[in-house]
Amino acid sequence: MRKHLLYGAIVFVVVILLFTLLPSVYSNEDLFFQAMVYLALAQGVNILYGFTGYLPFGYVGFFGTGAYATALSITLLHIPPIPAILIGGLASVVLGILLSPLLRLSGAYFAIGSLAASQMVYYIVSNPALQNLTNGPYGINLESVYQPRASYITMIVIVALVMGVVIYIRNSRFGLALQAIREDPVSAGMAGIHVVRQRAMAWFLSAMIAGVVGGAFAWHISVFYPTTVFDLNISIFAIVFTLFGGVTTVLGPVLGMFVLYGFYNVIGISEPQYFQLIYGVLILVLVLFLPSGMVSLMKRRGHYVP
């Protein structure tokens, strides 16, 4: 067990070091910022899907809610960015509480139900009727507090916290309980696991992560429209990265994000013409030949994956 924790710690340290040092090697900080956003979101998906089996198709709903709650705390209440980001996380948890009846659904029902929920939030936020509150379709402008360096550092801290949480879950009774629920909720309940409470915990945790990440994103990007932060592709990217790397592990989403998002940018910057085509083919090939994610390569050889 202690050895497992050590492996997790190694992944943690490598990731944090990379994101701290990379900007001084390659000065496109935004690239690494986006990478961190996707990494944290992928880990959020991992907590929910990997450990409980619920696939949140509408995960971006929490992200957008966090972004808007943070932005509005800054513009309307004049709260400094970092506490505002915490409010973003809280707002997402509140949304999670409102949406918790979704947990009664399973499989594709849950996936699509959460998608519907995220679209609803988007249509409400962007509706002109709420213009006085959300600025409706005119979007957000946070230029007065724009500090890319500070938001970058904040994002590193968020990634560190998220990675820490995932390492904890991976190595704790809580994580084991969640996996037991995922495999067979009825027997897990009989074995004395509080099914509903544990599952809700994972759901709120995952919502909070997306909310906080959304808040940091809002601060970093600072001028945006509702479509930017409720873009369904954000969900899809986070899910694809997670599944591609391998769920229920600490390492999987990290690998998935680095490889796929890395490819995405390498192709995007060098060969823009057939960009989408190459990306689609890549995903297809990987799904067919590595269906359990990249970590299955290591597992097959009998290695432990943190």
Binding site: Y49, V240, L243, F244, F275, Q276, G280, I283, V287, P291
Partner: peptide, 30 residues
């Protein structure tokens, strides 16, 4: 048949069809 061999084909099909969707869109644009 290949897809069905994975642990959770139902969810993996999501990514599979996401890939197909990207390819179709890319070819359609061209």
């Amino acid at each position: 048949p290949r897809l069905l061999r994975s642990r959770d084909p139902e969810m993996l099909s999501l990514i599979f069809f996401f890939g197909i969707s990207q390819i179709i869109q890319a070819i359609a644009v061209i």
